[in-house]
Amino acid sequence: MREAKVHRIPTKGPDDVSGLASAIARGAIAPEGIVAILGKTEGNGCVNDFTRAFAVQALKAELSNHLPRAAVDDIAYVMSGGTEGALSPHILVLERTAGPADNDGPSLAIGRALTAPLAPEDLGRLAQVRLVADGVRTAMADAGIAEISDVHFVQIKCPLLTSERIQRAEASGHTTTTRDTLKSMGLSRGASALGVAVALRELSLSDIDESHIGRDMSLWSSRASTSAGVELENHEIVVLGMSRDWSGPLIVDHAVMADAIDVAPVKATLERLGLGKDTSLVALLAKAEPGTSGRLRGSRHTMLDDSDISATRHARAFVGGVLAGLVGSTEIFVSGGAEHQGPDGGGPVAIIARRNGG
């Protein structure tokens, strides 16, 4: 029997690992049990957001004091740049330990998978969809989750294109889906999300034409959250679900927002979890997307027309405020860019809660 633990630790900057170091020193976190670390860093969330790589470098340096290098590299590091508005920089440390044999019901289960590097010419194409689908299945097996319905969230860190990677592909006689490095982020997020949809049988591979990726937003996953970064060339995949083979007080459920102010499904999830009555909030993870119409419930917005601030930055701040108002906390993981992650303009939300007394 395994037990999942989730530690939410505020940070003073991308390189601040003092909270993690303190938790390890007092025995609250066992380094050998860490499966993944998710983080919100205060960069711009775009191609040149090196706060993500900075945070990963600092985390690996700290963990190298406690673990062999191979074990440090096996951890999934999913850093999401951008804490616009009042979103608070923090990390979520996901840990697995041995749990008590007795279990009154299903508990949070965590699985992880790291894929092979993705060739630059495969980014945003069906090869990426297949690679991610296989990785999600591997992460489910790692968590011991057999039933697709028991998966509530799949968090992925995926690569993007840089000028050097584009040149590498072209030098070997290949072409890339785009030469625009910023657009490559959306294509990578979208292909990764469709890979989740295929793995969870929300879509079949035959439903997806390569021309659909990043364009046909009628194709989407209800449980995918993908974030692109310059700091890696593979995919780091974390599956969150429920299993009777796991014990402990943590539970997870998910909702799908139809648009940026669709709070009803989130409220329903909070009620199912008994938040504020039977449980307390541990973590909230969500996707934010301005949508392609330029309107929200009939009213025009300017998120897509602002040349100074990326639309994803607007969306993170806006959705972050909506969700923070529901749960009473700004330490929430809101990631921008929701291509194929929930309906156009909306997005999936996952809530991890702790049963009272646990």
Rank of each mutant, 00 (worst) to 15 (best):
residue 253 D to H: 13
residue 254 H to D: 14
residue 255 A to C: 09
residue 255 A to T: 08
residue 256 V to M: 07
residue 256 V to E: 03
residue 256 V to W: 01
residue 257 M to D: 06
residue 257 M to E: 06
residue 258 A to C: 10
residue 259 D to A: 11
residue 259 D to M: 09
residue 259 D to Q: 12
residue 260 A to N: 11
residue 262 D to I: 09
residue 262 D to H: 12
residue 263 V to C: 11
residue 263 V to Q: 13
residue 263 V to A: 13
residue 264 A to D: 14
residue 264 A to Y: 09
residue 264 A to T: 13
residue 265 P to N: 07
residue 265 P to K: 07
residue 265 P to R: 06
residue 267 K to L: 13
residue 267 K to D: 09
residue 267 K to Y: 08
residue 268 A to F: 05
residue 268 A to G: 08
residue 268 A to V: 04
residue 269 T to D: 03
residue 269 T to F: 02
residue 270 L to H: 01
residue 270 L to M: 15
residue 270 L to G: 01
residue 271 E to I: 10
residue 271 E to C: 07
residue 272 R to Q: 10
residue 272 R to V: 05
residue 273 L to A: 03
residue 273 L to G: 00
residue 273 L to K: 01
residue 274 G to Y: 03
residue 274 G to A: 09
residue 275 L to K: 02
residue 275 L to D: 01
residue 276 G to Q: 01
residue 277 K to A: 14
residue 277 K to T: 14
residue 278 D to N: 12
residue 278 D to P: 02
residue 278 D to S: 14
residue 279 T to A: 15
residue 281 L to F: 04
residue 281 L to S: 02
residue 281 L to G: 01
residue 282 V to D: 02
residue 283 A to H: 00
residue 285 L to I: 14
residue 286 A to Q: 04
residue 286 A to G: 09
residue 286 A to Y: 03
residue 287 K to R: 15
residue 287 K to Q: 14
residue 287 K to M: 15
residue 287 K to F: 10
residue 288 A to T: 05
residue 289 E to N: 15
residue 289 E to T: 09
residue 290 P to M: 07
residue 291 G to D: 00
residue 292 T to G: 14
residue 292 T to H: 12
residue 293 S to N: 05
residue 293 S to H: 07
residue 294 G to M: 03
residue 295 R to C: 11
residue 296 L to E: 12
residue 296 L to N: 11
residue 296 L to F: 14
residue 297 R to H: 13
residue 298 G to L: 12
residue 299 S to E: 15
residue 299 S to V: 15
residue 299 S to N: 14
